[in-house]
């Protein structure tokens, strides 16, 4: 549904990453997203994953990447935003299994995983480019049983990729589910790792989006040989059903 929402809190998490809290009356599920009008001069909405929801307050975070997110970041506390949502299919928490659930996030892909980690018992593996880009570490520590940070340049935490950390963590054989969101190469590797080990895995995908409600057939991804709509059939997909071949 379309909502006109008041921004009640704006925080800058790091260079180019902003965090908004808005009044929002519809209770979302972890993994769902909102579709936001960014302001004058920006025609299309921008899809943004939901980072948290608590008693009428929805939190979302985003990086300034283009004109849309730049305009959005110019908003201040007290401003109103036109938000469609909550939209899409979220994470399936019913299939986490008896063992440990691990969330794996790369960069701005970590946001939907925080909301999920509040709902189910998880460990988190979070990857960033460098120390200055590390965000939400304390948030995750407050809800996860363990938080592993990796940086590409080794300036903080593990020096390397989240997929290396994941591979090491899976050696203990107590993990029964993996939920991931991040850059495509990361997700492709996580699909491979979890498939090899027979672990349940879901991925939250991103694609350039139009309507956000499943009507325009723009934001597709290949799943089991056919194009599925990221906004409607996803954004969360079972990893084994995603084709990364293209």
């Amino acid at each position: 549904m379309k909502n006109i929402c008041k921004i009640i809190k704006k925080t800058q998490l790091c260079k180019e990453v902003f965090d908004f809290e808005v009044e929002f009356s519809h209770r979302p599920l972890p993994g769902q997203f909102i579709h936001v009008l960014c302001g004058d001069g920006v025609f299309l909405r921008r899809p943004i994953s939901i980072c948290d929801y608590n008693e009428g307050i929805l939190r979302f975070s985003f990086a300034v990447r283009g004109e849309g997110t730049k305009r959005l970041a110019n908003h201040n506390e007290g401003d109103m935003l036109d938000i469609l949502g909550p939209l899409g299919r979220g994470f399936d928490t019913g299939k986490s299994g008896e063992g440990t659930a691990v969330v794996v996030g790369g960069g701005i892909g970590i946001f939907p995983l925080y909301f999920l980690s509040k709902r189910i018992k998880t460990e988190a593996i979070l990857g960033f480019r460098t120390k200055d880009a590390v965000i939400m570490e304390d948030d995750f520590k407050s809800v996860c049983s363990a938080v592993h940070i990796a940086t590409d340049d080794g300036s903080y935490g593990f020096h390397g990729l989240v997929t290396d950390v994941l591979q090491g963590r899976l050696e203990k054989a107590d993990v029964t589910s993996v939920y991931a969101c991040g850059p495509m190469p990361m997700m492709k590797e996580i699909k491979r790792i979890t498939e090899d080990m027979g672990i349940f895995c879901q991925l939250s995908l991103e694609q350039r989006m139009g309507c956000g409600i499943g009507a325009c057939s723009v934001c597709v991804c290949k799943s089991k040989g056919e194009y599925k709509k990221v906004c409607q059939n996803g954004p969360v997909f079972n990893a084994r059903e995603v084709d990364f071949d293209e």
Partner: peptide, 13 residues
């Protein structure tokens, strides 16, 4: 995909 791009006051699909 990508099947859509925003352009000034418009959509390219």
């Amino acid at each position: 995909p990508p099947r859509i791009a925003e352009t000034p006051s418009g959509i390219l699909n």
